[in-house]
Amino acid sequence: MKKYVCALCGYVYDPADGDPDGGIKPGTAFEDLPDDWICPVCGAGKSDFEPE
């Protein structure tokens, strides 16, 4: 599973870690994140992410 980088702030979404504070379990692929998921650091939307 690919990591994705937030183009706004540089945060890296790692599927292995998920985003527990945002209710995303470890092992969740970026593509499977809900559409309203936001970057935990800067609040950017999914569309602001690019594959690492």
């Binding site: 706004l8 800067c42 950017a44």
Partner: peptide
């Protein structure tokens, strides 16, 4: 109007 990363989150 939120202006995220202009220049902080």
């Amino acid at each position: 109007l939120e202006t995220r990363m202009l220049h902080w989150p």
